[in-house]
Design a protein around this nucleic acid. Structure first.
Length: 201
DNA sequence: TCTACGATCTTT
DNA sequence: AAGATCGTAGAT
């Protein structure tokens, strides 16, 4: 039986709740399928690490739009970051997809990695977007339709580990320390694993 | 226009 | 520990 798409309503909740429920779900684009293993919530309001912290801009506009769409941006001039927009229309919140387990299309993934051999370890957000073949032209794309980039129902994670978010040194200490990074316990597809610790299930 | 700086990754 | 590399946001 073909896996089902996640409905729009799935995304229409606080980013931290969506983040937890995204672990184990599957991203598909073309022949590439990835199981989500690590995420970060960028919440609204009151999150000084959020790209939406100072209002609407051309780049972050999809985050302010309806939930269930992608927000893709270019980071450090070379890596694309995939986020899934959450909360409700008019609120700027999203979940960053940080790491995934490849479940289909490994030949395509390998080719996109520039022909490098070795294990396909999709740990880190830049590698996830690269494996899926995404760039900023996908920002705003819906994930709840059979229309290229999709989020499908996968096998839920049983145990979850948590930690603080990566690369947000510009944020207020309170938000730097907030444990809004979540990962599947024991998964090898997790970045910075030493900064995570066991917690909620 | 000008400038500083990234929600990173790879190599040294 | 540092370089690659460029779009964005805020300042001028």
């Amino acid at each position: 039986m073909p896996s089902r798409l996640l409905r729009r309503q799935f995304y229409a909740r606080d980013a931290l709740d969506v983040a937890r429920d995204l672990l184990g779900q599957e991203l598909w684009h073309g022949g590439v399928g990835l199981r989500i293993t690590e995420v970060e919530a960028y919440r609204y309001p009151d999150d000084s690490a959020n790209h939406c912290r100072s209002g609407v801009t051309p780049r972050n506009a999809p985050m302010w739009g309806p939930p269930g769409h992608a927000y893709v941006y270019l980071c450090y001039g070379m890596h694309h970051m995939l986020n899934l927009v959450t909360n409700s229309d008019g609120e700027g919140a999203a979940v960053l997809i940080r790491s995934c387990e490849p479940i289909a299309g490994s030949a395509t993934i390998r080719r996109r990695r520039g022909g490098k051999d070795g294990p396909v370890l999709l740990t880190g957000p830049g590698k996830v977007a690269q494996a899926l073949g995404l760039d900023t032209s996908f920002s705003g794309h819906p994930l709840y339709r059979r229309d290229g980039l999709e989020l499908r129902e996968g096998t839920r994670a049983s145990d979850i580990i948590v930690g603080s978010r990566i690369g947000i040194g510009y944020a207020e200490p309170e938000h730097q320390q907030a444990e809004w990074r979540l990962a599947i316990a024991g998964s090898p597809w997790v970045s910075h694993p030493r900064h995570l610790r066991g917690a909620a299930r």
